[in-house]
Amino acid sequence: MAKVSMTVNGKAVSGEVEGRTLLSTFLREGLGLTGTHIGCDTSQCGACTVHVDGKQVKSCAMFAAEADGAEVRTIEGMANADGSLSVIQQAFQDHHGLQCGFCTPGMVMAAASLLADNPKPTEAEVRHHLEGNMCRCTGYHNIVKAVLAASGQDAGQIAAE
């Protein structure tokens, strides 16, 4: 067991982990941040997507020890300071971009990362960026609309083209 320390959603945290403990496991079991979900064991589904030092990362593909000293952001840290939904979160609700909610935290984290790099993506760019995040409920239609809407574009107009 080794001690790891990191900043998660702006708060300094630490814990004891085995060398093999994944970051996703540490977030869920060590810190009780259960918004990060585990949907597969081959790093395909993206439900565990978080940000590490500002970069989009599948937290099941990284050891907790590798995140020692890092700045980590999870879905629990995505709402506005007053607790209201952020622009991206609100767009997902407004456009019915989620059904069962299991892939949703990963989708929101992936969308935030896309929009940080590319504030006005095209539909094709949104679809390409979300390629590493699986959703079984929505057919992606409303997720794509939500991300476009969150970028300030008229999702209805783009969908109709």
């Binding site: 259960t34 918004g35 629990e76 979160q89 949703t104």
Partner: peptide, 15 residues
């Protein structure tokens, strides 16, 4: 709009 979305969007779902 779905009321359940708020908990799912903020990581507060209870699976």
């Amino acid at each position: 709009k779905r009321r359940e979305d708020v908990r799912f969007l903020t990581g507060k779902g209870r699976y």
